[in-house]
Lab assay of single mutants.
Amino acid sequence: DHWHVHIDGERIRLDGASEEFIRTLEELIRRGTDARELKEIIKEYLR
C-alpha cells in the first residue's frame, strides 16, 4: 500500500507504513502535535 500525508504543505510518502502507524499518526494529528515534530516521527519510522 502507498500512503502519504500532507504536513505543512509538504507531501510525505509513507511507503510500507503499517495501518497501526497510520492510526498513531492520525491520533497525534488529532492531539495537535506540531508539524515539525510529526515530520521527525515519520523520518524516524521510515529509517
Rank of each mutant, 00 (worst) to 15 (best):
D1W: 02
D1M: 09
D1K: 09
H2W: 09
H2K: 11
H2D: 14
W3K: 15
W3I: 13
W3F: 11
W3L: 15
W3D: 10
H4E: 12
H4R: 01
V5G: 06
V5P: 03
V5D: 03
V5W: 02
H6W: 05
H6I: 15
I7L: 10
I7S: 02
D8I: 02
D8S: 06
G9W: 03
G9A: 03
G9K: 05
G9E: 04
E10I: 06
E10G: 04
E10N: 05
R11K: 15
R11Y: 15
R11S: 15
I12D: 00
I12L: 07
I12C: 01
R13N: 15
R13T: 15
R13V: 13
R13C: 12
R13Y: 15
R13L: 13
L14I: 13
D15C: 01
D15R: 10
G16Y: 11
G16I: 07
A17L: 06
S18Q: 07
S18G: 11
E19A: 14
E19I: 12
E19R: 07
E19S: 11
E20D: 12
E20N: 10
E20M: 10
F21G: 00
F21L: 07
F21W: 06
F21Y: 03
I22H: 05
I22E: 02
I22S: 02
I22G: 02
R23A: 12
R23V: 10
R23S: 10
R23Y: 08
R23N: 09
R23H: 09
T24L: 12
T24W: 11
T24C: 09
L25H: 00
L25R: 00
L25A: 01
E26C: 04
E27T: 09
E27Y: 06
E27P: 00
E27S: 09
E27H: 09
E27A: 08
L28H: 08
L28Q: 05
L28R: 04
L28K: 06
I29K: 03
I29Q: 04
I29G: 01
I29P: 00
R30M: 11
R30K: 12
R30T: 10
R30V: 10
R30S: 12
R30C: 08
R31N: 13
R31C: 08
G32C: 03
G32I: 04
G32M: 05
T33V: 14
T33H: 08
D34H: 12
A35N: 09
A35H: 09
A35G: 11
A35M: 09
A35K: 08
A35I: 11
R36W: 14
R36Y: 14
R36F: 11
R36K: 14
R36H: 13
E37Q: 14
E37A: 13
E37H: 11
L38N: 00
L38C: 01
L38K: 00
E40D: 10
E40N: 12
E40G: 06
I41H: 05
I41R: 09
I42G: 00
I42W: 03
K43Y: 14
K43W: 12
E44L: 03
Y45R: 10
Y45P: 01
Y45M: 11
Y45L: 10
Y45D: 03
L46M: 13
L46C: 01
L46Q: 08
L46W: 11
R47Y: 09
R47M: 12
R47C: 09
R47A: 15
R47I: 14
